[in-house]
Simulated assay, not measured.
Amino acid sequence: MIIAQMTDIHIGFDREARPEELNRQRFRAVLNRLLKQPNVPDMLICSGDITDRGDAESFARTAELLVDLPFPVHVMVGNHDSRDGLLTAFPHTLRGDDGFLHAAFERDGLLVVLLDTLEPGRHGGAFCDKRRDWLRGVLEANRGTPTVIFMHHPPVVSGIQWMDPRADEAWITNLASALEGMGQVQAIHCGHLHRQLAASFCGIPVSVTPSVAPLVSLDLRPISPDVPDSRALITTEPPSYALHHWDGARLVTHYETVSDWQVLAYYGPHLQPMIREMEREKT
């Protein structure tokens, strides 16, 4: 099974742009690549910040590009989104009975958990007691099932200070308590940071998929809210997406940036001896 992930699309950042805003152009480019690359996804997860302002028009403009995809699409909420706007544009969104847009479903022996980390009016993450208890209940009921968790906000400190939470924030503590002793969780995949990241949380691998929208600059120096030092914050690095490959026993993640490139080698008869030799070594 292949799970594609896109994150931080931010449609509506520049709604007046003509003929089409940059973020929508980047979104089209990633969708086109996803459909043309050789690995057919079984589903697409859009892990939050679908829009930049949570408005109905931006959600609708996103939905129209996703409606005809040949695989299911699961849309999650990020801090720039609104739950009502998302549900209007994507009425079949999975949700809990408590008003949060979280869900869990099994596919090919893998439990996929989608978390809601939105607190309206707050840039950073949220994970209240209700969400903690919901997640704990799901994991308790599925201890024997390999699990992957998707959430918008990474529960780790990246070193990009202006984007980071504090390590001791209450929502992170709540998440940790829900995950305690849950060894079936194989990975946590996030967005929000607008850069690729690999870390761990509660002994679980944590990865951040880079954004579709422009990326956050990689600058690990301390930043002062009192001293605007002219550092780069946002760059035009190419958009990215992830493919999470589940083979029934192992979960592996691949990332691809979307830009123009040339193929330097094709698998033809001239390279067949090399492929044969590499496969022979595995026997």
Rank of each mutant, 00 (worst) to 15 (best):
Y267G: 08
H74T: 12
C128N: 10
A63Y: 04
L31Q: 11
A4S: 13
V157T: 12
L264N: 12
P205N: 10
M151P: 07
T173N: 14
I9H: 06
E119I: 00
L271M: 08
G124N: 05
A56Q: 13
D229C: 00
T51I: 04
R136S: 08
L197P: 07
F100K: 11
A4W: 13
W134E: 13
I149C: 07
C128F: 00
Y255T: 03
L135E: 06
V216I: 04
I160V: 14
V75K: 03
L110R: 14
H102S: 04
D116E: 09
I234S: 00
S177T: 15
A199G: 04
L65P: 03
L110S: 11
H92N: 13
P41Y: 13
L35K: 15
H123D: 08
T253Q: 13
R132T: 03
P91K: 10
A176I: 04
M6W: 10
E277I: 12
A199C: 06
E281V: 09
N32Y: 02
A265Q: 13
V75Q: 05
P120H: 02
G12N: 05
R231T: 01
E64Y: 01
E21P: 01
I204H: 13
L87M: 10
G125V: 02
R143N: 08
A242N: 07
D55P: 02
G96A: 04
P222V: 01
V263K: 12
F150S: 03
T88G: 11
H80R: 01
Y267R: 14
W171T: 12
A89Q: 11
P70F: 14
K36F: 05
V212Y: 08
R15G: 01
I160A: 09
D226N: 01
H74L: 06
G203M: 14
T51M: 07
H192E: 09
L22T: 15
T173G: 07
T117G: 02
V252D: 12
C202K: 15
G159M: 02
S259A: 07
A89S: 10
S58H: 03
D116T: 11
G48C: 07
R131S: 07
I160H: 09
N142V: 03
H192I: 08
R61V: 01
R26W: 00
G183Y: 12
